[in-house]
Nucleic acid binder design. Structure first.
Lengths: 168, 168
DNA sequence: TTAGGTGCAAAGAGTTTGCTCGTAT
DNA sequence: ATACGAGCAAACTCTTTGCACCTAA
């Protein structure tokens, strides 16, 4: 069956080789934010004749095509996620490294206003929160933060990120 | 004369060698966010017997001591700034690469609230805006964004940053 | 058929480190 | 005197690339 990302590639007239099809499928099925090594591992499991160079090339191609987005959560390695899900942010659990996605329209409005006040048109922005899970979770406030879906658990260590004194 | 950062080093009982004194001074006088290469250039200009390995080691030491903070504005190289100035954010001019610092108490409140809503205590966070300077600057709105001081001009290219389709 | 993709290994960029010598305390 | 820092070059990690071969369209 044709994966979502494979379809996007075809639409843009990209030549679909066997390895691209596999990588596209791995990406389509990824619910997390894998780095290149991880993508390579998953792809190689489906088809051994894939080299990591191809993963790098494909991931870059897809990023240029706007199909993938590169993320940097610290730690030196780039991580990727399909561009689909509208604009959203990341909250990294500093104790588990788990990444939680969320969206917040009020926040988007606020940053646009801040940029405007500084004399700029906002082209893009990034917001990352580093937090510690709290015992007694507030009883869900009934507003803003729309989505908020969890992810398996990538890096076991404590989350990195500028601002906290986490080595690397 | 003893630079601000040298003083902090002494307070923490760090052994002060000639090269550390020079690097501390360069950092104390930096109003921007230099990367290691740039720090090395500035330090070497004051005292030629400094190697880049020492700059790397010193910058890491100071980061562990909480005296320096590492930033990543994309582009692969880490950039540093003294930890002094209270919490602040960065707006990168995508056309010049210029970095503008600003603070915004309302924003801090908002992110703390978002984290709480997701069930977390906010440990730290980062916000980076990428914007394009606009011709007719709004006549300074009289509130929130406290500081907002400019910086010389580090990387000439267009600012990178996740979210925009900037290669590298 | 042929423009473009792939594998492999080598090259790059940024950063760290082993070892020997030097120096602040 | 001695524990710790510095210089140099080699090593490492992540990513890109040159080249000969292969393949989708």
């Amino acid at each position: 069956m044709e994966s979502r990302i494979e379809r996007l590639c075809v639409e843009r007239g990209l030549k679909m080789t066997g390895q691209r099809r596999v990588i596209a499928r791995v990406l389509s099925e990824a619910a997390d934010h894998p780095d290149v090594e991880e993508l390579y591992r998953r792809a190689a499991a489906l088809d051994a004749r894939i080299s990591i160079a191809t993963v790098y090339r494909t991931v870059r191609l897809l990023e240029e095509q706007g199909i993938l987005e590169r993320r940097d959560f610290g730690g030196g390695r780039a991580r990727y996620e399909p561009s689909e899900h509208g604009h959203h942010y990341h909250l990294i659990d500093v104790q588990t490294g788990r990444v939680i996605e969320f969206a917040d329209a009020a926040h988007e409005r606020m940053v646009a206003a801040i940029a405007a006040r500084l004399g700029f048109d906002l082209v893009s922005h990034r917001l990352e929160l580093f937090g510690r899970r709290r015992e007694a979770p507030t009883e869900a406030g009934a507003d803003a933060p729309a989505t908020a879906h969890d992810e398996p658990a990538p890096a076991p260590g404590q989350g990195n990120g500028q601002g906290n004194g986490v080595t690397r």
